[in-house]
Design a protein around this nucleic acid. Structure first.
Length: 734
DNA sequence: CGCACGTGGTTTTTT
DNA sequence: ACCACGTGCG
């Protein structure tokens, strides 16, 4: 049994999997078989009789990762994973809180606020408290509350030495009171409340400590302070905490992840030896060498060098485009070529730093007829029509849920205007009750709404879940509302109706897959697993996504696009402490996604925030060893680039400060790019120095040609930026 | 009440 | 360029 589990593993993997009952930190590099080690260890422990499935707690960050773990485990062991505690931090905390709702001081059917719900709850509260939304942006308030909780701090524990922070703390405190009154918890509350439950209630804590002999954590570098505290509490003094992570892939510090947890773990749990998994099974040598060279520029690493037994493979292909459009065109050409060589589209990924960059790429792909999938869009359970439907269901179940009530009291519109709602809120505040109870005592349209909710609840009491939803859709007026849409909104409404129908399907599926098929359980599922819920995994389509969402994935070919300073590394990162290092880790993650071929591209100019901006090649590209790169376009060097003063290169509104920009000139041998049509052969290229009778000396920074009306944008030393029609302007190249 | 228009902001994201 | 949000009018 054991021998088959352990076959094909390298010594370090084997060592990690078979460690005795002790805490351990596994430093697992990209592509080193991290998930395999984690799941195999669980299988090993169980099959060995060291622990029963009952005694395992395995934690991940995403539902996807949790699902993957369960799938692999069932393939290895003939066990029922249902009773096992494998899930996300939030999912597991939810499970514990449901089991001990009384001790946690929560209603049995407490509901979970997602980020959107939380934001509207905060806005509502701020209005009621008369907090100036200008001085205290609700989003900032939201992140203040969440990050405080993720530090393990309640409002009364947050240090506030200035009136501004004190006000924020007041809102924080009041917000928690409001949530408690309404019987809802937000994401970070799930964790904090569970942590408090365990730390305050010795009986419960000891019960779980007794039970979970082995705790395993995936992507440990992404844990925040509270998550680590929670793990420590559960592990107690005697249990084993087996953490797998990679400090070089820590890319979520911006949302509170604390890589320092890795060092703290080794201290707190007296980890004897950190096991390093350094053999990479994913990428060819040159790709790995590039990744290693790049990441070696980071300070404060735990230290680890990935190696592979594969040969060097291809060089990394570097392309300098004139514009973002040109970059996209190049990528399309290359993809066509790859396709003709038999590479499946789904084996190719286009990565970018920020979502806005997908647009140009998508446009080029559509024109080329290449199918693609963009990741990270609006999630299924976050769609407006779905949220509305869920709000009816929530309110039916828990009339204390003011958030839900406010969302639907006038949707579909039933003549309850803003004024009436305001009055209702005031009355509720006076009576110190939730909105629903006050509404029940009102008259007219408002009490009709109350009657509607009650009749929905009564009529569906005995129905199975999918039929409950179906009934609500029909009788709330939602279906009718979207059916009645006409004109430009017709298409959109049809899609929404489809989604509502899909919600019924999702409920049907949920009932089949879950023992607990109650409405509460389904609503929890909806909040906690907002869900990929995207069909088409089997389709052969390109993957378009941010570098962040690419973590954990791998592809035959990867295009890393937009490698320009200011974009990647991102401008805003340079303000933050350690920001550049995190960007570099992000680049490291991007590079290590590629198995066989890697493209690195950048553009001299791109459309950003509605105006053309000019960037220079990313410093990260310059950190890669020359010998690993194959420049498709002539190599950029420091000597042949121009520097423009900020005053000349910027003409945006608002007078925001801008950096100096460097342009690398296009050389004549360049095979591709240089814009469209006329610009390709003409001397009017970006970077060309020109002279104009009236404006004097300048540099071409933009070229636009549609047939005869070719125009160039020139930054003149004296006169600033001008668009000139080539037909009329007397320009001379210098 | 609901639409039309103006304004401001715009890194990354899971739960 | 694009989207989300707020204000003012019919």
């Amino acid at each position: 049994m054991n021998s088959s589990l352990l076959s094909g593993l390298n010594p370090e993997q084997r060592q990690a999997i078979t460690l005795p009952h002790q805490s351990a930190l596994i430093l697992a590099g990209a592509g080193s078989g991290k998930t395999r080690v984690l799941t195999t260890r669980i299988a090993y422990l169980i099959s060995n009789g060291a622990v029963s499935p009952h005694g395992i707690l395995a934690v991940t960050f995403t539902n996807k990762a949790a699902k993957e773990m369960v799938t692999r485990l069932t393939a290895m062991l003939p066990i029922n994973t249902r009773g096992m505690w494998i899930g996300t931090f939030h999912g597991l905390c939810n499970r514990m809180l449901r089991a001990h709702f009384r001790e946690a001081n929560l209603p049995q059917a407490f509901q979970i606020l997602d980020s959107g719900d939380q934001l509207s709850a905060i806005k509502r509260l701020m209005k009621a408290m008369n907090v100036d939304g200008e001085k205290f942006p609700p989003r900032e308030m939201q992140s203040f509350i969440s990050s405080s909780k993720e530090q393990g701090l309640r409002a009364n524990e947050v240090e506030a030495y200035d009136p501004y922070t004190r006000r924020k703390v007041e809102v924080f405190a009041e917000y928690d009171t409001q949530c408690q009154r309404e019987g809802v918890v937000d994401f970070s509350e799930l964790l904090l409340r569970c942590y408090e439950l365990l730390s305050r209630n010795a009986a419960i804590r000891e019960h779980y400590q007794e039970r979970f002999k082995h705790i395993l954590v995936d992507e440990f570098q992404d844990t925040n302070k509270l998550q680590y505290q929670w793990l420590r509490l559960l592990a107690g003094k005697n249990n084993s905490l087996f953490a797998v992570g990679d400090d070089d892939q820590s890319i979520y510090a911006f949302r509170g992840a604390n890589v320092g947890n890795m060092q703290e773990l080794t201290r707190d749990f007296h980890v004897q030896n950190v096991i390093k998994l350094e053999q990479n099974y994913r990428s060819h040598g040159n790709i790995l060498d590039a990744a290693n060279a790049l990441i070696s520029n980071n300070r404060n690493r735990l230290g680890k060098n990935l190696w592979t037994s594969e040969n060097g493979g291809e060089l990394l292909r570097v392309y300098e485009a004139a514009t973002d459009v040109d970059e996209a065109a190049f990528i399309v050409d290359e993809i066509r070529q790859l396709k003709s060589e038999g590479i499946n589209l789904k084996e190719i990924a286009l990565l970018y730093r920020s979502n806005a960059q997908s647009r140009v790429l998508e446009h080029a792909l559509v024109s080329a007829g290449l199918s693609y999938r963009v990741y990270g869009g609006l999630r299924f359970f976050e769609r407006q029509e779905i949220k509305h439907t869920l709000a009816y269901l929530r309110l039916m179940q828990n009339t204390d849920d003011d958030n839900a009530l406010l969302r639907i009291i006038n949707f579909p519109t039933r003549g309850i205007g803003a004024r009436s709602i305001e009055q209702l809120q005031e009355a509720a505040k006076q009576n110190n009750t939730v909105l629903f109870d006050t509404a029940a005592r009102a008259g007219g349209k408002i009490s009709a709404f109350v009657a509607l909710i009650e009749s929905l609840r009564d009529a569906t009491r005995e129905l199975p879940l999918p039929e409950i939803i179906d009934h609500v859709l029909e009788h709330s007026g939602l279906t009718a509302h979207y059916q009645n849409e006409t004109g430009v909104k017709k298409r959109e409404a049809e899609e929404r109706l489809e989604n509502m129908n899909e919600l019924v399907n999702a409920a049907t599926l949920f009932v089949h897959e879950n023992e607990d098929d109650s409405l509460t359980s389904f609503l929890t599922h909806a909040s906690l697993e907002a869900g990929e819920h995207q069909a088409g995994d089997q389709d052969d389509a390109l993957h378009l996504m941010t570098v962040h969402s690419a973590k954990g994935l791998e592809f035959h070919t990867v295009f890393i696009t937009g490698l320009e300073d200011g974009l990647f590394p991102h401008q805003n990162s340079q303000r933050e402490d350690g920001g550049l290092d995190e960007e570099r880790r992000l680049m490291y993650v991007a590079i290590t996604r590629a198995r066989r071929r890697l493209y690195l591209s950048f553009a001299q100019s791109r459309m950003l925030h509605g105006q053309v901006s000019y960037g220079m090649v990313s410093s990260f590209l310059r950190e890669l060893p020359d010998g690993l790169l194959h420049w498709i376009t002539p190599r950029v060097t420091a000597q042949n680039s121009y520097t423009l003063s900020p005053a000349l290169s910027h003409q945006g509104r608002g007078g925001a400060a801008s950096e100096a920009y460097v342009y690398s000139p296009l050389s004549p041998e360049r095979e591709r790019g240089g814009g469209e049509g006329a610009a390709r052969q003409s001397p009017w290229r970006i970077g060309q120095r020109v002279f104009h009778q009236k404006f004097g000396e300048g540099v071409i920074v933009g070229v636009e040609s549609s047939g005869a009306d070719a125009r160039v944008q020139v930054n003149f030393k004296r006169a600033g930026s001008k668009w000139l029609a080539l037909e009329y302007a007397k320009l001379t190249a210098v």
